[in-house]
Every structure is written in structure tokens, then in C-alpha cells.
Amino acid sequence: MLQGIAFYVLAAVTVIGGLLVVTARNPVHSVLWLILTFFSAAGLFVLLGAEFLAMLLVVVYVGAVAVLFLFVVMMLDVDFVRLREGFAKYLPLAVIVAGVLLAEMVMISLVVAQGGAAAASTGPATPNPDATNVEALGRVLYTDYVYIFQAAGIVLLIAMIGAIVLTLRHKPNVKRQDVGRQVGRDRNKAMEIKSVPTGTGVKPEDLV
């Protein structure tokens, strides 16, 4: 009973939050609604018994991704009012696409509900009551899916190499702080006493 109420509340908040993400006028508000959506989705994960995934969602998506979005939204000089100009014009097309997607999702849900999809496979593995979430996930990731897991790691590595290749520029004339050299300086290296003849003054080129 309590679980049922919690599910419907969280699900409703998720859907409404998602709707407000796309309809909010102010992009900062959009990101804030997105954070609310992530939080309620995390709640849904808890209801499913997937506490670890729920925590991941909060830490990774709310803590990192959404905050990054906020930075981007606030720092980029994008005129969001102009971006939205075509909203009404493209709305019919968007409604059609969304309708098709919704119909497909309903179709799949129906098939799954009738047990059609589960017939081919053994269905979802029954959770081991002794293992915690993290343990169960880790076991699968490092045994059955180790190949995919490592390959996904290389995908991320390529993204990093790509970012460096496309943006890093070695500038030879940049002055960088070198603590070792700073500490290693003593009075003999840093100063020089020059005797200046009286009355002639000092020219700038003598100082270099």
C-alpha cells in the first residue's frame, strides 16, 4: 500500500518534472526541474530495490551532469528566447513523433505484460538475497560483461584523447610558475650590482 502510494507520487513527479524541463521559459529553471526529475527517478530505483543505482543517479547525474549543465547554461551566451521561436511551428511534427514513440512503448509494455518477451529467455535473473547491489553488479560486470565493460572504458579513453587532440595547444611563450626554480634562486642569481658613473644615469638596455 505504502509502496504503491510512493510509486505513484514519484512517477507523477518524474513525468511532471520532465514536462517542465521542456516547457520552462528560463533555461536555469529547466535544469532545476531536471534535477528534480533525476531525484524522483532515483526514488523509483529505490522502490525497485536497486539502491546502488539510485545513489549513482544522484551522485553522477545530479552531482556532476546537472551541475555541468547549469554551468553551460549560465556561461554560454545563447539567446534561448530565439531558440524557441520555432516551437509553435514545429509542434505538430513533434506531437506526431512523440505519439509514435508513445505508441511503440505501449506496444512493448503490452507484449512484456503478456509474458511474450520473457518466453524466449530465462527472464531477469533472480536476485541473490545474500549479495548486496554493488556486489551483484560487480560480479556481472567483471565476469559476463568484462569484454563490453573494458571496451566501454576504451570508448571513454578515445573521447579523452579526442578532446586533447582537438583543443590542446602548446604555447611556447607562456610563462609558467616553476616552484623549484623560484626556491632555488638566491641573491647572487637574482641581483647584480652595477656601478653607475655619476651624472650619466642608467639606460634601459643596461638593465637587461
Binding site: Y147, V155, I158, L166
Partner: peptide, 19 residues
């Protein structure tokens, strides 16, 4: 899954190479 990961692995590198 290996189909998808393989495709992403090579495409991501190719996007960078194109630029």
C-alpha cells in the same frame, strides 16, 4: 551490446580524425 560498443568505439575515433 558488442555491436553497439564496437560501432561507438570506431565512430568516436573517426569523428576526431575527421576534424
Amino acid at each position: 551490446i558488442s555491436l553497439y560498443i564496437g560501432i561507438e568505439l570506431h565512430s568516436l575515433a573517426l569523428y576526431v580524425l575527421a576534424a
